[in-house]
Design a protein around this nucleic acid. Structure first.
Length: 482
RNA sequence: GGCGGUAUCGUCUAGGGGCUAGGACGCCAGAUUCUCAAUCUGGAAACCCGGGUUCGAUUCCCGGUACCGCUACCA
């Protein structure tokens, strides 16, 4: 068996959406596992709907997901000669014929048929045109249609759906070449898949009904068709087709929302595929090793953002720290909180802070929102946090005393800080929790943050003291407001 | 409408002629804790319906229903 060659063939009529990304991922996993070649092909023959800038957008999505390709991108718009050659060959062999019906005429006849309730199929008007009649119309615009056999059926095997079969009389004489000499999808894919020696076609299940037509072309030219593997579709959380209504259209929107590509990949791989056991967390290496077309499911899956977030949180806290750091840096740059020292003199400090924060983060954006106080002195006190932890009216006095105690700590270490805080609580005869929780709000503005002593250690004495003082000063107004 | 396909907790799924139908996310409760997250323990939650085949069907077959796809000189 020849080496595996697969392709991802998006058309640049939209961004790389979740469904396309999943198809791209499955092809990629299969190629990498088989040591095969992954081809990227841009199907841009629909000149009205294709937009050049969307090619970049699709590529950006693939890059973010880390799905690198070995060949291409090829552009169908630059391979027209190959389609014309295939069409001519089909014409010559009598498997195709010229059709002079105009789209307008076709439209009329279709509507008329539908009015009478009959299912429309191309009526074959030009199918039996004699060579003389065709010659007489030489030079007139025409399409080229495939001559589908009148009786019989076509049966093919799909790796995931098994044996599929359709009667020929269900298939109309479909157009191969439009009157503007541009190929239709069917002609384009087959010509390309033959030329590019594609061995496995892994694509969305929405192409199942197209497959018989394409196999007909392979048979007509005597070429062995590739292996077909259709994968179920991904639906929105309301079980309808994924669309703008469901929020993010492009996978890059998930990047912008703060998802890690590794987590996204893991999540995506499990939409329509399972390793066959209970394993869910799988790094790319493991996905490549374990992926198999035989374990692809046949039922459409719906996209569950909550689970995606769980994967992301899981990766955020368990990936090697060095892999997380650049993503956090990127997020802080985006939000204008980044300081160059953090990749220079304070590199270690930055790593410590991220490590401290990440067990509680769900999204990368949490670093610039929820954890803002670790990277900036400008932060607000969360209203709920104020209500929950700052209502005791003794707090003004208590925090002032705590600030004094902390200002006198010799070694600014976790344990020394703890001693000082607990000591202050004892002296003033209050529970340590009262001081701890109130301090947390003072230092971070949040009710939820990492353990306090570690937070203080990382923030440094100076910031701790000034932030405590700042809260003491604003406490009266905060308390009356709450 | 026609044709094709699919049907296991809310969601992603495992499983398969006999199982207390398993796991994960989410949800609820408890434990733990300086908050929360994590962690641990426990809980609620599913085989679409009807016929067959069979000693026995969630599993196999047929029908219905629901959903999805295709039904373009889109891809």
């Amino acid at each position: 068996m020849a080496a595996v060659r697969v392709r991802f063939a998006p058309s640049p009529t939209g961004y790389l959406h979740v469904g396309g990304a999943r198809t791209a991922l499955f092809n990629w996993l299969f190629a990498r596992q088989q040591g095969g070649v992954y081809v990227l092909r841009i199907e841009d023959t629909d000149i009205d709907r294709s937009r050049p800038e969307l090619v970049e957008a699709v590529i950006e999505g693939l890059r973010w997901l880390g799905l690198d390709w070995d060949e291409g991108p090829y552009f169908q718009s630059q391979r027209l000669a190959s389609y014309h050659a295939l069409a001519d060959r089909l014409l010559q062999a009598g498997h195709a014929y010229r059709c002079f019906c105009t789209p307008e005429e076709l439209d009329e006849r279709r509507q008329a048929a539908e009015k009478t309730g009959k299912p429309w199929k191309y009526d074959g008007r030009c199918r039996k045109l004699s060579t003389e009649e065709v010659a007489a119309r030489q030079g007139q615009p025409h399409a080229v249609r495939f001559r589908v056999p009148e009786t019989g059926a076509i049966t093919f095997d799909d790796v995931v759906y098994g044996q599929l079969s359709v009667n020929y009389d269900e298939i109309e004489d479909f157009v191969l070449l439009r009157s503007d000499r541009l190929p239709t999808y069917h002609l384009g894919v087959v010509a390309d898949d033959i030329d590019m020696r594609i061995t496995h076609v892994i694509r969305g299940a929405d192409h199942i009904s197209n497959t018989p037509k394409q196999i007909l072309i392979y048979e007509a030219v005597g070429v062995e068709p590739p292996v077909f593997a259709h994968v179920p579709l991904i639906l929105g959380s309301d079980r309808t087709r994924l669309s703008k209504r469901h929020g993010a259209t492009s996978v890059t929107a998930y990047r912008d929302d703060g998802f890690l590509p590794e987590a996204f990949r893991n999540f995506l791989a499990l939409l329509g595929w399972s390793p066959g056991d209970d394993t869910e967390l799988m790094r790319t290496e493991e996905l490549i090793r374990r992926f198999s077309l035989a374990n692809v499911s046949r039922t459409n899956a719906s996209f569950d953002r909550a689970k995606l977030e769980w994967f992301n949180a899981e990766y955020l806290r368990s990936e090697p720290l060095e892999k997380i750091l650049p993503h956090v840096e990127n997020e802080l740059r985006r939000s204008g909180l980044w300081q160059e020292a953090w990749c220079g003199a304070d590199k270690e400090w930055f790593a410590r802070v991220v490590d401290l924060l990440r067990p509680r983060a769900r999204l990368l954006t949490d670093f610039s929102t929820w954890a803002r106080s670790f990277f900036s002195d400008e932060f607000d006190y969360d209203a709920a946090a104020v209500r929950k932890f700052l209502k005791d009216e003794r707090l003004g006095e208590l925090l002032a005393q705590l600030r004094e105690a902390l200002a006198g700590v010799q070694n600014w270490t976790h344990d020394e800080i703890e001693k000082a805080v607990r000591g202050a609580a004892e002296r003033t005869d209050v529970k340590a929790g009262l001081l701890i929780n109130a301090s947390r709000v003072a230092l971070t503005g949040q009710a939820v943050a990492p353990p306090l002593f570690a937070t203080m250690e990382v923030l440094g004495r100076e910031k701790v003291v000034t932030r405590l003082q700042r809260l003491v000063d604003s406490l009266p107004s905060l308390q009356t407001r709450a």
